[in-house]
């Protein structure tokens, strides 16, 4: 493999890992509520921005990060409590508009709180690139990829091995039956927003030293993450992770070998191609409409 190819691949994996985390957030909320949360990208933005400002206010870095995650989780729960829960039973389009309203609101909030400039966050372990087979990779990229792996494994454990996680899976596949066995659906819903906000903010913190933090940073990441979630088959968390990586790597390879002008279109072209061939996503087994 040539060094150039490796370079493109690492770039793609790093970016793809962020798409994966955002896509994962979409999937978790979708599973619990059948809501597409268009404010998912704003969780990423909040994680990065809040860390920058807590750190700037003099808090030590680990505490600043923890505070930022806590704050984003709180905002995620507030979003569920005050915007999504009251709209229970509304149509898909209505819910889409509510979450888009929320994303505009959160961007507005960040602008008022922290201004509109872009800011950087120091990388966790320096900025001297590491040579891997001729490709030069930033340590922060390894943090992003490593962080994503840890999160994915933890989540897999959570959904398969813990009572609460199993309850979340159960209520996603059959809400009525879940309620009958005593699962508190309201709590599951709240938890799903908290979890997604946490994922988003961690992604935001990990990526901030690479992408910088500014109020609009979440817009494109949110859209690409949505691509990943759909491509992976909505509500299929591991599918979203895989699809996020596929999108990221395809983009990097397109930019490197074909045309960098149409790089941003790649994700959407893949999506359309896949949807036309497999209308329920790449990793889905298909479903039926209830009459």
């Amino acid at each position: 493999m040539s060094a150039d190819f490796l370079q493109f691949l690492f770039s793609g994996i790093t970016v793809g890992a962020t798409y994966a985390l955002v896509g994962l957030g979409f999937s978790i909320i979708y599973n619990a509520s059948h809501v597409i949360n268009f404010a998912q990208g704003e969780f990423v933005m909040l994680g990065g921005m809040a860390t920058v400002f807590f750190y700037g206010a003099g808090l030590p870095m680990p505490l600043a990060m923890a505070m930022a995650v806590a704050m984003t989780i709180f905002i995620g729960m507030a979003l569920e409590k005050f915007a999504v829960e009251p709209a229970k039973g509304a149509s898909i389009v209505t819910l889409i508009i509510i979450t888009i309203g929320a994303s505009i609101f959160l961007r507005g909030l960040a602008e008022v709180l922290w201004g509109r400039n872009f800011h950087s966050l120091p990388p966790i372990s320096g900025s001297d690139p590491i040579n891997i087979g001729g490709a030069l990779v930033l340590p922060q990229s390894l943090w992003v990829v490593g962080g994503t792996i840890v999160i994915v494994i933890t989540l897999a454990w959570f959904f398969n091995r813990t009572m609460t996680g199993k309850a979340m899976v159960a209520s996603a596949s059959n809400p009525l039956a879940a309620r009958l066995v005593g699962i508190n659906l309201k709590f599951i819903l709240l938890l799903s927003f908290a979890l997604s906000a946490m994922l988003g903010s961690i992604a935001g913190i990990l990526i901030a030293p690479i992408s910088l933090a500014y109020p609009g940073v979440g817009i494109m990441l949110g859209l690409k993450g949505f691509c990943a979630a759909i491509l992976g088959g909505m509500g299929n968390p591991m599918g979203a992770v895989l699809a996020g990586l596929i999108v990221g790597i395809s983009e990097a390879l397109t930019a490197g070998y074909i045309s960098s002008a149409y790089k941003d279109a790649v994700a959407f072209i893949i999506i359309l191609a896949v949807l036309f061939l497999r209308p329920n996503g790449l990793f889905s087994t298909g479903g039926t409409e209830r009459v």
């Binding site: 929320a102 609101f105 008022v112």
Partner: peptide
Amino acid sequence: HDYEHLVFGAVLIGTMIFMR
């Protein structure tokens, strides 16, 4: 002024919830 987006977002959410 500066609160334009904040208000716009809130108006969207509010209208959709109360007049869905």
